[in-house]
């Protein structure tokens, strides 16, 4: 598959994820599996379709109070930050899939770390930036290091070990970095 075809495929999957997520907003929470924390890079997991994403999506739509403090998402293309006191289910055009820097300037306390997801609605593999930390993504060295797995989702959306640079799409404040996706 060519790079262009892969990119188009991924865009379609992101769009589909957003559509499905929008369709199930407001549905009651159901049992869902934990995200699966990742193995070291030697155990690269390839994307593959299997299941539905409903469980994962429901885990991500829990209403959250606004954070005190801000999470900064910077895009070179736009030359500016998006700043968030709360969660975002999808960054706007120009930052979505275009992120170059992240800064967690959140208030230290509960839910002061931030998960960054490859897909809208906090779906797919994710990386986590700690409170006070700054990431320059331009070297393509940060990767999505955690992922959902073994749930009943039917749509494999985890680009594990793909770079966060120009791929991040949504974020959520969490209590700690690691196996925390449903918090």
């Amino acid at each position: 598959m060519t790079h262009q075809a892969k990119k188009g495929n991924r865009s379609m999957r992101k769009l589909l994820a957003a559509v499905i997520a929008a369709a199930i907003v407001g549905t009651p929470s159901v049992a869902h599996a934990a995200p699966e924390p990742t193995a070291p890079p030697a155990a690269v997991k390839q994307s593959k379709p299997d299941g539905t994403i409903a469980g994962s999506l429901r885990a991500g739509v829990k209403p959250m109070a606004d954070r005190n403090g801000l999470f900064y998402v910077y895009s070179d293309d736009m030359g500016s930050d998006q700043t968030y006191a709360g969660n975002s289910t999808q960054w706007p055009t120009g930052w979505n899939d275009k992120v170059d820097q992240l800064w967690n300037n959140g208030f230290p306390g509960s839910q002061d770390d931030v998960n960054i997801y490859d897909y809208p609605w906090h779906v797919g593999a994710y990386a986590c930036i700690g409170n006070g930390d700054f990431w320059n993504l331009r070297e393509d060295d940060y990767v999505f290091s955690w992922t959902h797995a073994h749930d009943d989702s039917g749509f494999e959306l985890d680009p594990l070990w793909e770079t966060v640079h120009d791929r991040g799409t949504s974020h959520k404040w969490v209590d700690w970095c690691g196996n925390n996706n449903t918090l």
Binding site: I129, G130, F134, W135, D141, Y142, V143, S145
Partner: peptide, 10 residues
């Protein structure tokens, strides 16, 4: 970081 990235902090 051992799994990639150079995390910074003020």
């Amino acid at each position: 970081l051992p799994f990639g990235g150079t995390v910074g902090h003020s």
